[in-house]
């Protein structure tokens, strides 16, 4: 195992490449995320940032390179992959709450079925998490009865219920109405303050400024810049990043 370069990295990507047919979507990606760090990945659509996020729990396979979580290399398939995924929370753009389960069951299913926690314990933990994200009173409802913002907060609670080492957010607010974006971002900012390790793909520059320790800018499948937020937003180095930021500011 070649992890000497990763040092104390919790999430480590080394020389990761991925193709969709002819399209080279991830080009030699190297990224280390330390424990407690909040890394925001931004970039134009099609830059590979969502794909990058999804490779970290192997919802997308990679062609070459190596990804490790907490020093353990991501297994290819099977039981060990499932075990590792339990340590990596994921929040999706489209929430993906289990449509046939109640809000409470959505949160307890993982702890009960994957970790073998007993139901009473899981229910108690889940209620705490649901209260924490502000949807405790919705527990007996079905996902479709909740607003998008509420569903996404439940999705965050569902991921947290597994007590993950790192949380991945794949454009968590892109499917939300503007007035619901903040209620989700507030939960995420709170989470960041509590020291959760987070990798967040987003278009919310406000979140990046407020909560990120580092901003990673991607374009055409490559990491073009990797800097502190203040540095990145005020003094971008590459022309791609300058171009991207200028388009954001004019709107």
């Amino acid at each position: 195992m070649t992890t000497q370069a990763s040092g104390d990295a919790l999430v480590s990507l080394n020389g990761v490449n991925k193709h969709y047919g002819q399209l080279h979507v991830l080009k030699d990606i190297n990224l280390q995320v330390r424990k407690g760090e909040v890394v925001v990945v931004i970039g134009p659509s099609g830059s590979g940032k969502s794909t990058l996020c999804r490779t970290i729990n192997r919802l997308e396979t990679i062609d070459t390179g190596e990804i490790s979580i907490d020093g353990k290399r991501l297994p290819e398939e099977g039981k060990h992959l499932a075990e590792l995924r339990a340590d990596v929370g994921m929040v999706f753009q489209s929430f993906n709450l289990f449509a046939h389960k109640t809000i409470l069951e959505n949160v307890t299913l993982g702890p009960i079925k994957v970790k073998g926690v007993n139901k009473a314990e899981a229910d108690k933990e889940a209620m705490k998490l649901l209260e924490r994200v502000g949807v405790g009173h919705q527990a007996p409802k079905l996902p479709a009865q909740l607003s998008g913002g509420q569903q996404q907060r439940v999705a965050i609670a569902r991921a947290l219920a597994m007590k993950p080492k790192v949380m991945l957010f794949d454009e968590p607010t892109s499917a939300l109405d503007p007035e619901m974006i903040n209620e989700v971002l507030d939960v995420m900012i709170q989470l960041a303050k509590e020291g959760m390790t987070m990798i967040v793909v987003t278009h919310e520059m406000g979140f990046a400024r407020k909560a990120a320790d580092r901003v990673v800018f991607m374009a055409d499948g490559q990491i073009v810049e990797d800097a502190e937020p203040e540095e990145f937003f005020t003094n971008p180095q590459s022309s791609r990043a300058k171009d991207f930021l200028s388009k954001l500011l004019t709107h």
Binding site: M90, F92, N96, L109, A155, M162
Partner: peptide, 27 residues
């Protein structure tokens, strides 16, 4: 059943059999 349902199930650490019997088949 939308693909995202299976992805969400896998992302909380469920194995293929659990994804199928707990999430996909009931829907």
């Amino acid at each position: 059943v939308p693909l995202g349902q299976a992805e969400a199930a896998r992302s909380i650490g469920m194995k293929f059999g659990q994804v199928l019997t707990l999430i996909i088949l009931p829907q």
